[in-house]
């Protein structure tokens, strides 16, 4: 198995040069990947975890994070181009989200959605204050896949329609 290492030692100088440049290039790729991951990854929470970290005082304000869950039925309200809704999850954690902008097409009640934004430390608009922990989202994603037809309805609604027979493969 290790004979290829011995062979490499016997190879002429050009071969070694090729090998060295290959290894250098590959190290450069690895460096690129890991530095990129450090810079560009965001912390991701479920609503229940958000609630937990707020009660235990661990949630950082003004830090960019993502929160993923289901849009709670009957929670969407739109006031002057600002959308308010509630993200929830299986364990019934709740986060109120404020979003200004265009909602994606597949955004709907009962649908899985991910919100990206911050919990601002300073809010002054006369309606609520920073200690009410409203999540200011500036980007909303919905799940992308071939399973829209299933994810559209949440589990409780599925149960109403299908009894116990929830089709397998339903995510979350």
């Amino acid at each position: 198995m290790l004979s290829f290492l011995e062979k490499a030692r016997e190879k002429p100088a050009t071969m070694n040069r090729t090998m060295i440049s290959l290894i250098m290039a590959f190290l450069a790729v690895l460096w690129l990947v890991f530095s990129g991951i450090q810079d560009a990854s965001l912390f991701f929470y479920f609503p229940t975890e958000v609630e937990q970290s707020i009660t235990s005082d661990e949630m950082e304000q003004d830090a960019r994070i993502r929160i993923g869950g289901f849009v709670q039925p009957d929670s969407i309200s739109i006031e002057d181009e600002v959308v308010f809704f509630v993200l929830t999850d299986d364990e019934r954690g709740v986060v109120r989200v404020r979003y200004e902008g265009i909602l994606p097409d597949m955004f709907a009640e009962g649908q899985g959605a991910v919100a990206e934004g911050i919990f601002p430390s300073e809010v002054d608009n006369g309606y609520f204050s920073a200690d009410e922990w409203i999540f200011y989202a500036d980007d909303i994603f919905v799940k992308h896949g071939e399973e829209y037809s299933k994810e559209h309805l949440d589990k409780t609604e599925m149960k109403k329609r299908f009894g116990s027979g929830i089709p397998s493969g339903t995510l979350e």
Partner: peptide, 24 residues
């Protein structure tokens, strides 16, 4: 797959979006 490795190794969930790919 970074979100998986991160959650398994540190317990912290992360999300990697388009900025990472546009950089690398």
């Amino acid at each position: 797959t970074w979100p998986i490795f991160s959650e398994i190794s540190t317990g912290e969930k992360v999300s990697v979006g388009a900025p990472y790919f546009e950089k690398t």
